[in-house]
Simulated assay, not measured.
Amino acid sequence: MIELFISALVTFFVVIDPPGCAPIYASLTTGASAQARRSMAIRAVVVAAVILLVFALFGEKLLGALGISLDSFRIAGGIMLFLIALEMVFEKRTQRREERAKEVQASPEHEDVSVFPMAIPMLAGPGSIASVMLMMARSKGLEETLVVLGAMGVILVLSLFCLLAAGPLMRAVGPKVETVVTRLLGVILAALAAQFVIDGLKANFG
């Protein structure tokens, strides 16, 4: 149980990347009142939680309806997570997020950033959706399912804290420390992604 919780916690932390979302949120909400920033942060996390919960509970049935086996999804999800890991190691992910944030800032119709781009795709993007489905697939029984959901909940609460404390957090951490941590987490995610692919291949061809 503890191993599953730690594995799920690390996976969700790396993929959702709460500290990495903080500077983007800070830049997107520049000029907004403290109350507006707080309400948008809460709304973003709630929307992301609902999306991830839906895929956690019904994702496997959706795959079955489409005729996709869970092992095939493990392989595809593992490859997707590996690509995200490469972007983290080579600092491409942060660059892409910053470009997306600039696009949103340049569009006056996007005043409320809680749903887009914060909830989707920064918190509940393809990587986190794939991760929650893969982790749920590995869990057996109600207890393990609750452990995975609990780990996801912890990371979402941490994400909320990071968004609420985005300004002070960025001044405290600094860009250099953030870069080092991002690359280190990218290496860990690459190993987890490789394990997902190996599990899928073993199930298909073992």
Rank of each mutant, 00 (worst) to 15 (best):
V54F: 11
P18E: 09
I2F: 09
F90D: 06
P117Q: 12
L158N: 06
Q35L: 14
A36W: 12
M88I: 02
L158E: 11
F196Y: 09
L63N: 05
I129Q: 04
V154A: 12
A137W: 06
I120A: 04
A172H: 15
S107N: 15
Y25T: 12
V115W: 00
A36V: 15
L28N: 02
A106E: 07
A130S: 07
F13R: 08
R97S: 13
G167M: 15
L83S: 05
P19L: 00
R37T: 06
P23G: 04
A41E: 06
K176D: 13
L63Q: 01
C21L: 15
G78E: 06
K61I: 07
V14C: 10
T30Y: 13
E87Y: 10
A76Y: 03
G67V: 03
L164G: 07
V154I: 12
E98P: 05
L9E: 00
P23V: 01
L192T: 00
P108D: 12
L184G: 08
E99S: 14
L156E: 00
V47G: 01
I68Q: 05
V89M: 01
A49F: 03
R171D: 00
T145I: 09
L201I: 10
E60A: 02
A194K: 01
T94A: 14
G206Y: 10
L201V: 13
M118L: 07
V147E: 00
F12D: 07
I24A: 10
G20N: 08
Q105V: 13
V47H: 09
E143D: 10
C162R: 02
I79K: 05
F82S: 07
G150V: 05
V104R: 07
I2V: 12
V177I: 14
L158I: 13
P168V: 13
E144V: 11
L63R: 00
L53M: 14
P108G: 11
V115K: 03
P23I: 01
P18I: 04
G77F: 06
L4M: 12
R74C: 06
P121S: 01
L53Y: 07
D112K: 09
S131H: 05
E98C: 10
N204D: 13
L169K: 08
L164I: 03
G127Q: 09
A130P: 04
L192K: 09
F196S: 08
